[in-house]
Write a protein that binds this DNA or RNA. Structure first.
Length: 833
DNA sequence: CTCTCCCT
């Protein structure tokens, strides 16, 4: 079979030559260049391979299978001979396999299982520009291996974007660029009208695009909500030759295929898609792309421990990739719905920078080496949070070393949370565990009314009903048969890994699912609040609520599997009820009896309780007598409730605090103490606690004591700096001292009569000249005339006007022609006359 | 009540 010509084909000899002498290479090639299939084939007999095989990392299973298939076909062999692939629960490799295409998790397992990479001569990272977590980790590990154990290992990073320069610098590697094979795409930026929503804009541009172009249209939107809205609005186009279809990841395979199929005769197709259409599916017949320029990306917040989705502007690389979709079959057009002047980021933020990192942290603990040659190192905050979770799950010990359980979790190959739950489950429930691993990993197979169910058990019973009858509609479940078949396939894989013969049918009791999964989410155990059946408190102290049509009404205990983070409390999207006796048995250390002292504003008194808690959840609370040692904590609680203003501030102390806080902001290099309200409230124990000893009531604290407590926060040197750089008052040219009013975040205000400033050319400044004072210029009667930070400009431009106007009203006061040299005064008549 | 994509 003669190899077909690809755009990359002429570059293959150069690739060979470079790799003969260099162990690392960056290959830049746009989609359609043929790099995925032609590079491995070209390298398979390279002398430096020395009989070892090539491993190629592919970010998606479909792509891994397809690439292997294509290469085998080109060799005229069945798959599993020279070319094979390995994805989870599926392996098509043989003894003769020289090119092995693997997905991301497989590569990590391969490396961890044998850090010398015996029998592997080269690793190719395809689609590296997508910057998936596992790709970054795999590359860092491969580089580490090359530095230490295997200098002969070849590492080839293949990327579709222009970020190649940065990657080449990181790898210290030469760079080869290949042209792609696509048709020219005309780019337009039709502007939005004022008050026009993105959706309205998109519909209007669709109308325009239909007139200006032939062929089908692919429109990119950030999510399902926007797709549904636009779908509704398309009727406004009032054309009956249009077929509008949605395409997003939540659709079943059959529904996706419907979107991918070409339109029927005479009809023009408009595909409204999310990011799935950017890289994961190929769409035939597209001639026009309309791009809203938005995408949803997950952001993990290590402080709250939650991930939320944010709608963000896409990168330039992504915009180009999207536009390229219009040029695959013929020349096309792309309409971008953002202003041409907007600067997009060059490429998308690496996943490692913004996702939850427990899986990565566990891999790093197993690897043992602390420092890896990252392109972008994992953020310290997220890594610390991940390690805390791993300790909680039992995967790391207190010194953050991997435990035996942690190693077994890695071997199992599920996420750390789910692996922990699986490995703690009693053997009798392993068949159910396999189902839970498969279901937790997949999108919900439920359709229709039940798709909205927040009771995770509904999915489990749908799987069981389908398994028993091989029917997606049995037992009143409306479910997607294709999705269920895929879930069953995964469950079968987990059963094999757990050494089980048969599948689960039915649940042993109503709490079984929750009792198993609570070990995966010990921080997300929730207890129903008193008084409101929809509100819950999570073990981590946060609030959560069920939606109004919940299927979980009345369950006192839940383990929350999925929730959407909201400002006040979070919405439970998926949960399962549990039996609290399991908590008592498995987490006895989390149950505590604590004494809680608080201030009751209503009763203006100290109250003391003894509470029985699970984490932050209060199970039982009873009043106990208030004791002497309760007083200080209660008074501090009262202050926290009332705020700093509730304290007896003298005028001097109040001004001192504001000056100190302002100067700290203006001159951070002085290292002044933080006296902001937030910090003072947070540290009350330290600075005010000593002054509250032996006090029972808040008003027993005097102004003097409070002033002393504040003054004790800074030393003599700091006080001297304060008086020099943020003085309490300024002496103005008239010889009078005038107060400066400080207010954090703003320049200080000096209110002064105009006449007192005669002779002063420029605005006075504080903080070593960094901050000009805001002048409130007053009339002789003390009425405001002008607010300015530019005294020079005032004298020059505004003063002549002001003078004209005020001279008549205040004839006894001086209004000189030349304020620069006039004698300043605060009296009616200038001194000495 | 409406959440992108993907993987061991």
């Amino acid at each position: 079979m003669i190899a077909p010509m690809f755009p990359i084909t002429p570059l293959l000899p150069e690739l060979q030559t470079v790799l003969a002498s260099k162990s690392r290479l960056v290959l830049e090639a746009p989609p359609g260049a043929g790099k995925t299939t032609q590079v491995p084939l070209a390298l398979r007999d390279a002398p430096w391979l020395d009989g070892k095989k090539i491993v190629m990392l592919e970010p998606r299973r479909i792509a891994a299978r397809a690439a292997a298939q294509f290469m085998a076909q080109q060799l005229g062999e069945p798959i599993g001979q020279t070319v094979g692939y390995r994805i989870r629960f599926e392996s098509k490799v043989g003894a003769a396999t020289r090119i092995e295409v693997v997905t991301e998790g497989i590569l990590t397992r391969l490396i961890q299982a044998d850090p010398e990479l015996t029998g592997i001569g080269a690793i190719l990272f395809d689609e590296f520009h997508e910057r998936h977590l596992a790709g970054d980790l795999g590359a860092a590990l491969a580089l580490d291996i090359q530095h230490t154990l295997r200098p002969d290992l070849r590492i080839v990073v293949m990327s579709a974007t222009l970020d190649g320069e940065r990657i080449a610098q990181w790898l210290d590697a030469p760079r080869i660029s290949s042209p792609g094979r696509s048709f020219p795409v005309r780019i337009e930026y039709p502007p939005a009208r004022t008050q026009e929503s993105t959706e309205q804009h998109l519909v209007r541009v669709t109308r325009q695009a239909l007139e200006e172009n032939e062929g089908d249209i692919l429109a990119f939107l950030p999510g399902r909500r926007e797709i549904a809205r636009v779908q509704g609005m398309m009727h406004a186009l009032q054309r009956d030759d249009l077929e509008v279809v949605a395409l997003h990841g939540e659709l079943s395979l059959a529904e996706q295929q419907l979107a991918l199929a070409a339109a029927e005769g005479g009809m023009r197709r408009i595909v409204l898609a999310t990011n799935v259409a950017e890289s994961s599916v190929t769409l035939p017949g597209i001639r026009v792309v309309i791009d809203a320029g938005l995408a949803r990306e997950p952001r993990f917040d290590p402080n709250s421990g939650f991930t939320r989705l944010e709608t963000l502007s896409i990168s330039q690389a992504s915009a180009d990739q999207r536009a390229g979709r219009a040029g695959r079959v013929a020349e096309g057009a792309a309409y971008r719905l953002w202003p041409q002047s907007r600067r997009l980021d060059a490429s998308r933020t690496a996943e490692i920078m913004q996702v939850e990192l427990s899986g990565l942290a566990l891999e790093l603990a197993a690897w043992g080496s602390a420092e890896l040659p990252w392109l972008d190192p994992p953020p310290a905050g997220a890594l610390a949070q991940a390690r805390e979770l791993l300790i909680r799950l039992g995967a790391l010990d207190a010194q953050q070393r991997i435990t035996a359980l942690g190693r077994r979790m890695l071997e199992l190959g599920a996420t750390p949370r789910l692996a922990a739950a699986a490995l703690r489950a009693p053997e009798a429930l392993h068949a159910l565990v396999a189902d839970l691993l498969a279901l937790m990993d997949a999108r919900s197979p439920l359709r229709g009314e039940q798709a909205r169910s927040d009771d995770f058990r509904t999915r489990v019973s749908a799987l069981h009903a389908w398994r028993d009858r091989r029917s997606a509609t049995g037992s009143g479940h409306a479910a997607d048969a294709g999705a269920l078949a895929a879930i069953e396939q995964a469950s079968k894989g987990w059963r094999q890994r757990l050494n089980l013969r048969s599948a689960a049918s039915g649940m042993p009791h109503s709490h079984a699912v929750g009792d198993l999964l609570l070990h995966a989410f010990p921080d997300r155990i929730a207890r129903q609040d008193e008084g409101n059946p929809l509100r819950y408190t999570l073990a981590n102290g946060r609030g959560a609520r069920l939606h109004e049509q919940t299927a979980l009404l009345g369950e006192p205990w839940l383990v929350v599997l999925d929730l959407r983070h909201e400002a006040r409390d979070s919405l439970v999207l998926s949960a399962a009820p549990l039996d609290p006796r399991v908590l008592e048995q498995d987490y006895p250390e989390q149950f505590r009896r604590v004494r809680n002292v608080r201030w009751s504003e209503g009763r203006a008194a100290v109250e003391a309780f003894e509470e029985h808690r699970f984490g932050a959840i209060v199970l039982e609370r009873r009043s106990v007598p208030v004791q002497a040692e309760d007083a200080v904590p209660a008074l501090l609680a009262a202050i926290r409730q009332r705020g700093l203003d509730g304290l007896p501030w003298s005028e001097a102390a109040r001004r001192l605090r504001l000056r100190m806080q302002s100067l700290r902001e203006w001159m951070p290099e002085l290292g002044l103490p933080d006296v902001s309200e937030a910090h003072l409230l947070a540290t009350l124990e330290d600075w005010l606690g000593p002054y509250l000893q032996n006090k029972r009531k808040l008003d027993a604290l005097s102004e003097d004591e409070l002033s002393q407590a504040l003054a004790a926060l800074f030393d003599y040197e700091q006080r001297k700096q304060l008086d020099a750089q943020a003085p309490d008052s300024l002496t103005v040219p008239s010889g009078q001292a005038r107060r400066l009013e400080y207010s954090p975040g703003e320049p200080p205000v000096l209110a002064v009569k105009l006449q007192e400033l005669f002779g002063l050319a420029d605005t006075p400044r504080v903080a070593g000249g960094r901050v000009p004072v805001t002048l409130h210029l007053l009339s002789p009667a003390g009425r405001p005339i002008q607010v300015t930070q530019d005294l020079h400009g005032f004298w020059e431009r505004t003063y002549p006007e002001v003078k004209k106007e005020l001279k008549g009203r205040y004839p006894k006061h001086p209004w000189p022609e030349d304020p620069w040299t006039a004698t300043p005064t605060h009296r009616a008549k200038p001194r000495g006359t």
